[in-house]
Design a protein around this nucleic acid. Structure first.
Lengths: 171, 171
DNA sequence: CCACGCTGCTTGCAATTGCAAACAGAGAGC
DNA sequence: GCTCTCTGTTTGCAATTGCAAGCAGCGTGG
């Protein structure tokens, strides 16, 4: 009724914000919503509209779908098409690359483990996906991570040049 | 904004309803919303919340995402590739973990861009195919790769500045 | 010490959602 | 003609969203 159980979405947003190491006001500005409102959302006092949710997702640089799933607005299967399955199905990757990606993905999952279901993506719509925020406060993800990878992926045909993969980053 | 430009979503719903050959009241009952409200939604006089949208999608037996896309609540381009979409939609990963996985995935893609045919229907817009002289047919992926990764991903505090700083535009 | 900048939270208030009730038009049957 | 039942619509109104303004706490430093 008046106070629906929308806690999980707020917790999720706050957690993502903390992981991104940005303040409430910063996110509110990035998302184009007011700070008090974001505060209330994060504490589960308000149920943000889809529009707001979408803006927050942008501010967090995450998929809006992720938030919608969290908010119970999308059935889980609909959006969460299982990363591993997608990797396995990708025809552009070699078998070894697939394995590496899957390994990394599962490392992340293990790292974040907060009591998540051990099964694969088979969650029903309401199965509390995020029970506890746990202590994953710091995010052990250095940017050098990707840099560390590149020597590997390029290993063979690559003779010590610092310019293995020039990322032309443009939208 | 007396007249919100939400027409398309309403038209879309009405169209879907007509195609399903059900009356406004029938759909409103199936979706669990009031008929007047559904009427207003279909005519673009009201902007339904995500919750209502979700219920309407159920009542229409269509994907909620379809409605969200119509409503502009989900970017259509959220479907880069299946892998990237899956990573983005995964609720168990942090924003940075997502970015790392996507970076790695795209490194692989870039690396493979010479030998693999891109005939797979993936709706990828292929920004600009850059012909890398790399010809990684098979192999250059040591098993030690995953082993090398572990320390990184599992390491507690990397104290490095991996911050993907969301630049606060304007001050 | 008090101003300044930052963090997040509380308080009214306009605008909006979403609904119950009532309204209008088109057929069907008596 | 009158009554039912269906169609979609309009009209108030409670409840909610979302915001501007202001409050409280914390660390810096002049």
């Amino acid at each position: 009724m008046a106070l629906p159980k929308v806690g999980s979405i707020g917790e999720y947003i706050r957690e993502q914000r903390k992981q991104a190491k940005i303040s409430l006001r910063q996110l509110s500005a990035a998302a184009g919503v007011s700070n008090p409102y974001l505060s209330q959302i994060e504490r589960g006092l308000r149920k943000p509209s889809a529009e707001i949710l979408n803006q927050i997702a942008k501010g967090l640089h995450i998929s809006a779908q992720a938030l919608y799933v969290q908010a119970g607005l999308i059935e889980h299967r609909e959006a969460d098409s299982d990363v591993v399955a997608a990797i396995r199905a990708d025809t552009f990757l070699s078998g070894r690359q697939r394995q590496v990606l899957i390994d990394i993905y599962e490392s992340f999952r293990k790292e974040n483990r907060t009591g998540t279901p051990a099964e694969d993506t088979q969650t029903s719509q309401n199965a509390q996906p995020r029970p506890e925020p746990a202590e994953s406060d710091d995010d052990p993800l250095p940017e050098s991570f990707a840099a560390t990878l590149e020597p590997f992926v390029a290993e063979d045909h690559y003779t010590g040049n610092g310019n293995a993969t020039p990322r032309t980053k443009e939208g």
